[in-house]
Write a protein that binds this DNA or RNA. Structure first.
Lengths: 394, 394
DNA sequence: TCCAGAGATGAATCCACCC
DNA sequence: GGGGTGGATTCATCTCTGG
């Protein structure tokens, strides 16, 4: 259900104590007008985030939070999305409306972002406050995998306390007792979820669009199938799309009729980016074994992850053009490795190329292609820099 | 320099406008008494974090922030460490004393933690607010490496704007032009720095001890050699130790004489954990190639990272004991793989073991050792679960 | 019914020992 | 002797009990 109205009037359309989850992404008090054009430039979406004063902003928010509180069931929760500009005001308002003791989590949505360097740190997170209406709230624990540094062997061993109260592993004879497989680590409050890619199909051109994956996680934590989800500032309707995909009922409101139209349209044809990054996580792109990574570090090169022919680029401030490096794999012949590197370089104008080989007998150089081969046993930053980096061609 | 006194009196010891960086880690308004014993149980360190009301806490902090503001140079900055309990109050205080426009960053210190599960998300971050005294503040940009998902090839291509103002890659003929090597991505405001390990030598037994690595990053961002660093709640003196190691001058105050003694002692013998984790990052423990990881996922097994003989454990809720799995590598013979798995299992009472082999001709089972070998071409969750997981022994 | 304090808990990490 | 792996330790915890 979608209503074009101020959410202050939500009670005209919703029963009190009927909603299981409120997710809202209100204006952030940026004091700016936000605009963005859609894909074919035919429409411009805007919203206004300018206020007379902090106080008027605070009142505006607090009044609407009160309505949210009223429509929520006792077992319900609210997730409030904010950026750093006014997060403290928003949390204050939540404390007042929901009560300090119903604060559950400060969720950090962390993402990687491309941006020009400014003075200072690159802002790459937003905050989601999670409050429950009462102490008895719906919550479905999720688990994440153990850290790679964890000693899993040991985690599976049963423990007891000895007489002095120290913990020890229970053993029969010399062998420890194994216990049932564990589920993993409870989900942390720092969520690394990629930002909606500028080219993602999921994008509809509305400002501040959130990835569906983020909303899916929120819905999975606090609702079941059939539950009612309410988004009082629904905008382009990401929350509602996520709800629809996950078989929750949904109700959205927005002051902009264009937003409502857009959301309506999205709900009829929900598109979710099938992104490998979103599904498998950033690390799935890491295809280098640690050996290779260490080798690259040794010769002072940047690692490159998504290229079969190039493993890294040599770092050197004085050179204008980077030099691609490939490290021969044990399952590759020297000639195969050579071909892969050349193929990968075909479409660019690298002037020199470097192959590190474990089977080449000595340093060699094919001057026609400016192709250097260095045996891995000799490879060092010093040798490389004296051979390749000195004769700079710009 | 270390002074045993309330930092409200800092001006007795410090000139106004003399300090380059203030880092503080004040009480968090947890309304609890915090204690911890040191390594050999000879000393107990405590501090009190109980307050009459939020207001008294707020005043306490605000008064001390005013002193910090006064001792700071115009080019100086303040980093205020807080947890989620009262971060909004602290930020209000900073806004009032330093001015909203001097807010620079909300830094998220994120870590992995071990704690028993509760209803809700596992709290695993703390917040550091970064404010500058003026707009002209010292800041030394740091860079981190590109995300593995980044297409580095493309980053190195020069870009220009076309007539319509859209950016495009500059090409000569069909080949893109390569530009100078880049420095990396500007440091983000989400910092993943491991929590101080329970067994770390760096630990001195004082509650809430922060890792030196965290402080080093703060100091590197906002100070140079010789600069003066002030910690008004220095506790065990981590900030000062970091300052000393980085050749900054330092000044610490604390209300507890035990803390001052401890800090003094630490400064005389600064110990910093030489941690592989801190140096190389968590991913250095990941020694599995993506192929192996995908294979494990396919057969529904937990990956194990730190073991030459065991690559994973089969997941199954109904079984009592986990079953270790090894996947034969191409550079290993079947017999080597077999031996490695058996050796790794020696000290535990696993009842079944599974080896996935690319050279075994067919499924085989050594009943004496309960050792199963499955050819990799046949390996699937269905086969494995019907062969190994059904006949449960508890 | 609420609060304080005791008791149970669990995985991430460094360390030290062992081949 | 040096890399690998088992073991110990911890709680700006979390939960439960009893007064």
């Amino acid at each position: 259900m979608l209503i074009h109205d101020d959410c202050l009037n939500a009670l005209k359309h919703l029963q009190p104590s009927s909603v299981d989850l409120v997710y809202l992404d209100p204006p952030f008090f940026t004091q700016k007008k936000h605009k963005q054009r859609n894909r074919d430039n035919s429409e411009e979406y805007t919203f206004d985030d300018c206020w007379e004063s902090v106080d008027s902003y605070r009142h505006y928010i607090e009044d609407r939070l009160k309505v949210c509180h009223e429509v929520l069931r006792d077992s319900g929760s609210i997730f409030l999305h904010c950026d750093r500009t006014a997060s403290h005001y928003l949390r204050f308002a939540l404390d007042r409306v929901f009560g300090t003791s119903h604060f559950q989590s400060e969720i950090i949505w962390s993402f990687r972002r491309w941006s020009n360097a400014k003075k200072g740190l690159l802002n790459s997170h937003q905050v989601i406050f999670f409050y429950s209406k009462t102490d008895q709230f719906k919550f479905f624990q999720m688990y994440q995998s153990y850290s790679p540094a964890t000693n899993l062997d040991q985690i599976f061993q049963e423990r007891v306390r000895d007489k002095r109260g120290k913990s020890a592993y229970r053993k029969i004879g010399s062998k420890p007792i194994l216990i049932d497989t564990k589920k993993g680590v409870p989900l942390s409050d720092v969520w690394d979820i990629p930002y909606l890619n500028p080219k993602a199909k999921e994008r509809v051109g509305y400002p501040t669009q959130k990835p569906i994956a983020l909303l899916e996680r929120v819905l999975a934590l606090a609702t079941q199938e059939g539950d009612l989800v309410f988004d009082p500032f629904c905008g382009n309707g990401t929350t509602l799309v996520a709800a629809k995909l996950m078989k929750r009922r949904y109700f959205g409101m927005d002051l902009s009729s264009k937003a409502i139209q857009l959301a309506q349209h999205r709900l009829e044809n929900p598109v979710k980016t099938h992104s490998e990054l979103l599904q498998k996580g950033r690390d799935s792109f890491r295809n280098q074994s640690t050996d290779i990574a260490e080798f690259l570090q040794q010769i002072n090169a940047y690692p490159v992850q998504r290229n079969k022919g190039i493993d890294g680029f040599l770092k050197d401030g004085e050179r204008i053009k980077p030099i691609p490096v490939k490290i021969q794999r044990h399952e590759e012949s020297l000639d195969e490795a050579r071909k892969k590197l050349l193929r990968a370089c075909k479409s660019s104008d690298f002037d020199k190329k470097l192959l590190i080989s474990f089977e080449a007998p000595s340093l060699s150089c094919d001057l026609k292609h400016n192709f250097y081969v260095i045996p891995s046993v000799l490879a060092s930053y010093e040798l490389i820099s004296s051979t390749l980096l000195k004769g700079t061609s710009s």
